[in-house]
């Protein structure tokens, strides 16, 4: 019992540190990718290839002036960014990071919590993710911040619907709500993306909207709203908001890889003949490279597509994605019924 708890604590701290590190270096990669797309170098002054740039950014954020607007609601003003960061880090608990490790003859699952409703847990976290932004935007007592917060909430509510509808097809196919079970059924090359290409596309678009990434970064649309919901934030509180976005990118990449790209599975997985622990390590690296691939897609699209107008965003969400997702559910239902 004690041993198991130790493993869980170790695993969750490892995942925590990994998400923070990945988020930290995503900022550098984002700027490098931007530089590459725009035919310039990107940050290259701090350390070799700019590798120390995230550290320099972090130090800069910590030493910036801590500013509190005069008419702000003090408690909620601080709660906003803290909540955003907290909620961003919660999702990783149900993601299976690899097959079981074997330590001292005992198998240790590489998943913090195997609850039988893993997918719904992710939905719950996604749906409360908007609170941090709304609370922060309102507590700043600034109309631009408030407008950003209101935009964020309506955008997230609209895209959550299509997102959950696209997931329902996966649940219908798998017959389980547990992430572990969903990954187990995609063994080898039976990836869900091959059976649910439309569902994957809808989920991908919604994930962009839920993480507030371009082309759906309306809440922080700087040409109209100064800085959106974080207009009044400075120092590390602003840093938390920006940082949480990168953590969300990483985690949503992990969720997409788990649900649609087979999680840690890869073709010819059983022909390698590795020992269980080496096998787990390879599988983890495979999952990680899938997540990196999604991270690159996020950046690629950000530097390729212009931002949507607000009414276009709502139109896309309600009039295209939701009907398509419902159609997808109906088709999947019919196919499952016919194949019975």
């Amino acid at each position: 019992m004690l041993q198991q708890i130790t493993y869980k604590v170790l695993l969750s701290s490892f995942i925590l540190i990994m998400s923070l590190l990945v988020a930290m270096y995503s900022t550098l990669i984002e700027r490098k990718v931007a530089g590459w797309f725009q035919d310039r170098h990107g940050p290259n002054r701090a350390g070799p290839w700019g590798l120390l740039q995230p550290l320099a950014d972090g130090i800069k954020l910590f030493f910036k002036e801590e500013f509190m607007p005069n008419a702000a609601d003090k408690f909620l003003y601080i709660l906003g960014p803290s909540l955003t960061m907290f909620i961003a880090l919660l999702t990783s608990a149900v993601i299976p990071w690899g097959p079981d490790l074997v330590i001292n003859g005992q198998s240790v699952p590489l998943q913090v919590a195997d609850i039988n409703i893993g997918i719904l847990y992710i939905f719950a976290i996604v749906s409360i993710g908007v609170y941090g932004i709304m609370i922060g935007g309102w507590a700043s007592n600034n109309k631009y911040a408030l407008l950003g917060a209101v935009r964020a909430s309506s955008q997230m509510i609209s895209y959550e619907l299509a997102m959950s509808l696209s997931i329902i097809t996966i649940v219908m196919m798998t017959g389980s709500l547990s992430m572990r079970e969903i990954v187990a059924q995609q063994q080898g090359f039976h990836w869900n993306i091959l059976y649910q290409p439309l569902g994957f596309l809808i989920f991908l678009i919604c994930a962009f909207a839920e993480t507030n990434r371009s082309p759906f970064d309306l809440p922080e649309c700087e040409t109209e709203l100064v800085g959106g919901y974080h207009t009044e934030y400075s120092s590390m509180k602003l840093g938390f908001y920006l940082f949480a976005e990168y953590i969300n990118m990483f985690i949503s990449g992990a969720v997409m890889a788990t649900l649609f790209l087979g999680g840690y599975h890869f073709p010819f997985i059983d022909r390698l003949g590795l020992s269980p622990n080496a096998f787990a390590l390879v599988s983890f690296m495979v999952l990680f490279s899938k997540i990196t691939f999604f991270g690159f897609i996020y950046m690629w699209i950000r530097w390729t597509l212009p931002r949507f107008r607000y009414d276009q965003l709502m139109k896309l969400g309600w009039k295209s994605l939701i009907p398509l997702a419902i159609l997808n559910v109906v088709i999947t239902g019919i196919v499952i019924l016919l194949n019975k």
Binding site: A124, S127, S153, S154, E160
Partner: peptide
């Protein structure tokens, strides 16, 4: 996730 966010939205 849904009802209270809408409440908050309206009140804001």
């Amino acid at each position: 996730g849904a009802i209270m966010v809408l409440f908050l939205f309206t009140v804001m």
